[in-house]
Computed example of a mutant assay.
Amino acid sequence: MDRLRKWRSRRKSTVIVAQKGHNSLEDPPPRYETDLSPPAADPSASHYGIKVLHADPSAVVDICFIHGLTGDREKTWTAHGHSTPWPQSLLPSRLPARILTYGYNAHITQKSVASSNRLINHAQNLLTDLSADRGFEGAVDRPLIFVVHSLGGLVCKKAILLSQNAAEPKSRSIFDCLKGVVFMGTPHRGAWMADWAKTPASALGLVKSTNVMLLDILQRDNQLLDSIQVDFLTMIRRLRESGRRVEISCFYEELPFPVVGKIVNEQSATLDGFDAVSIYANHRDMVRFASDEDPGFRRVLWQLHDWTSQISTGEF
């Protein structure tokens, strides 16, 4: 009888481990952007909105960072073993810029109640919060660059489109001041992650609420995703035809996750006619640079430095 109980105990443990493995691919489960297992604790609202990482009185540009699905406005950009996001630790000494980061509730599953906000709600909040911050700073007319990861790129594109059509000058100023966008692992054409992402909630049964609206936007044939893509590219084309420059640069992940593969492949992460550069990392780590010697950091820095230099000299 004792041997039977021990066997049953071992079998139960094996089943639990297998379920965890199905959910998060590793044991223990990693916590990262697009790790769609339930978060350890509900995110605090204090992590949402604009946070200034570096205030430069001689800034010629605002650079705003936007995280992606299940991300955080600081942790997303912080390398393993580090306590400070690289936009705060590595950029200020190299660019005459005010560095901002934006946070929003991009968690699709939570232990209490997941946000019901759709992508358009997050985009409108970004537009409102960023406009207000620049207004308080007295920087409404300062040139603006975005650096965006994953779903954050879709939120950014929609916010720019909303700004373009805004009736109020304070909201339209985001569009008027836009100089460039650095897209990092953004699923412009959708990501297969959407179907996989639905698994954890049902597999573990640990969450009480799921924001399926954020998952739906990632489907390859999602009409809203397609319309954002068409409208954004149309906007860029018309601006260039009118003589106004808005630069675009796309970075894509080189490395897959074990079993899962690449979260956003090169085809989805790039835009025809614009620079496309790879970063030797997976979807999570492609935005976590540990030092200024990291090749990925140097590639992103060069793009930001080039644009900022042209803004400083009046060429852009």
Results as ranks from 00 to 15, higher is better:
G314R: 02
G135S: 13
G135Y: 13
A55Q: 09
F232D: 07
P57V: 01
G81D: 02
N117G: 08
H122P: 05
P200Q: 04
K158T: 13
L204K: 14
W196D: 07
P38K: 14
P295W: 04
A203L: 15
T34N: 08
I16M: 14
H107M: 15
I248Y: 06
P30V: 14
Q124H: 15
D141A: 12
H305A: 10
T186N: 10
P29S: 13
E315R: 14
D231Q: 15
F136A: 13
S209Y: 00
L224Y: 09
H107W: 14
D272H: 12
A40Q: 13
E266L: 07
Q310S: 10
I66C: 03
R189Y: 12
M184E: 00
I63K: 01
P258I: 10
L91Q: 05
V287E: 01
T186C: 05
P38G: 10
P57M: 04
L224V: 12
L154C: 07
E74N: 09
F232S: 08
S227Y: 14
F65V: 05
H149D: 04
L25A: 09
S46V: 05
R240I: 08
D2T: 06
L271T: 08
P87W: 05
D292T: 15
R189W: 11
Y32P: 06
I174T: 09
N222W: 04
A59F: 00
W307R: 07
A59H: 00
N265H: 05
V207P: 01
S115C: 12
A55S: 12
E33T: 10
K208W: 03
R142F: 12
R142P: 08
P43E: 03
P258H: 11
G243I: 02
T101L: 09
E266F: 06
N222R: 10
H47I: 03
G205W: 13
D62F: 00
F251K: 02
Y48T: 02
T76D: 02
F251M: 01
A166H: 15
L178K: 04
H82N: 12
D133Q: 15
P87Q: 07
V230S: 13
S93I: 09
H122Q: 13
S242A: 07
W77P: 00
R284I: 06
A106L: 02
V15N: 12
K179G: 03
T210M: 06
S309C: 10
M184T: 01
G81I: 01
P85I: 03
R299W: 02
H188R: 10
S249D: 08
